[in-house]
Design a protein around this nucleic acid. Structure first.
Lengths: 195, 195
DNA sequence: AATATAAATGAATGTTCATTCACTTACAAA
DNA sequence: TTTGTAAGTGAATGAACATTCATTTATATT
């Protein structure tokens, strides 16, 4: 039997995300995608059941790799400050390396009618739960609801990333997110979360 | 001459936002919108040049009202803590009153090919600039880049709002954003921003 | 070398899309 | 009451859409 062409699979995946980031969800048509990926429209349907399945699989793919990268070098017994900082750095690394993937991911998260599958995140969530519980027990962090923790700990980071990627400026000159700037914001976040 | 039917105009506006929030940008078709608004497709083109113009006008409309509400009872000479708290409360009030508008706005902001018109925000930005400058001068806030300030001050709030609206739960039980919870997070943010 | 099989194709299908246009309707001004 | 004009219409148009299918192609196994 004929073998699958891995290049075709990744071409479809990458071009699809590129198109969505460039033109939005309504900018992605199967025929334009096929042309961009150098493939017949029918070939896409070998890899994906239909358009919706394509989008969901892309989302799951990015979600999985993003959270894997976020946990590199991390374990829940690290000190609160060190553990959180590793995650900030890991996330930034991924975002700068795969800005298209991340922007697709964010656009997807802010859209409706979405299969918000959390299966892939079980391991990640388990780690975070332990990490936060430890931090509270050790007195490194105030006790609070997980959504509030998440919003303080990561809302700030994501907002800065959005400024960086979307080149939206607050006062005129564009904002470039560097590690020192990350550190400035991170120190504020740590201060906020301390008991 | 015949007079404009204000009801038609607002029906088109509200149904359009509803459809986008429910089904995403690709879920909005002019014919479906016309039917939902109880109007002929051609009527939409009296109010809006085309589909793109419709989306842009909706965005500008929401952006304008949102920022107007944000500034209610606010002036840049208020103390840093009081001024920021008023804005947090105003924003929450708007979001809870017009969740569809806000979700449309957020979906739009995270999508590309967008006319990010900032004209309406001149007054808002001027106010915020003064407010932040005063706060730094008075020693109520650390000196920092505006994007970092923005991310710490509002990134947290927006993240909590997203948990509330999208009913995405961190640990299983859904998160309901109330004023006491807002206050908890707000106090942390103020602590983070203090010199 | 022959064969079986899944990959890959391009053209075709029926549907839905944004937009237009010839026409009718309501109303303010005369 | 007549009239000018902008609001509002439903049907029509051609383009673009997602998906399918009969067919061809490449390769691993025999």
């Amino acid at each position: 039997m004929r073998t699958r062409d891995e290049n075709k699979e990744s071409a479809i995946r990458e071009k699809a995300m590129q198109m969505i980031v460039d033109e939005g969800f309504d900018g992605l048509s199967m025929q334009k995608l096929a042309k961009a990926a150098g493939v017949s429209p029918a070939t896409i349907y070998i890899y994906y059941k239909n358009r919706e399945d394509l989008l969901n699989q892309l989302f799951n793919y990015v979600q999985q790799t993003f959270h894997e990268v976020a946990l590199e070098g991390f374990n829940p017994n690290l000190s609160f400050e060190e553990g959180l900082w590793i995650q900030w750095k890991n996330r930034l690394k991924f975002i700068l390396k795969y800005p298209i993937h991340f922007q697709f991911y964010e656009q997807f998260r802010n859209s409706p009618c979405i299969n918000h599958s959390d299966i892939n995140l079980a391991h990640f969530k388990e780690n975070m739960k332990l990490f936060v519980m430890n931090a509270i027990k050790k007195g490194e962090m105030k006790k609070m609801e997980p959504e509030i923790f998440w919003s303080v700990a990561y809302g700030t980071l994501y907002s800065m990333v959005k400024f960086h990627l979307q080149q939206i400026s607050m006062m005129g000159n564009t904002f470039k997110l560097t590690e020192p700037k990350m550190r400035t914001a991170f120190d504020m976040v740590i201060k906020a979360l301390k008991p």
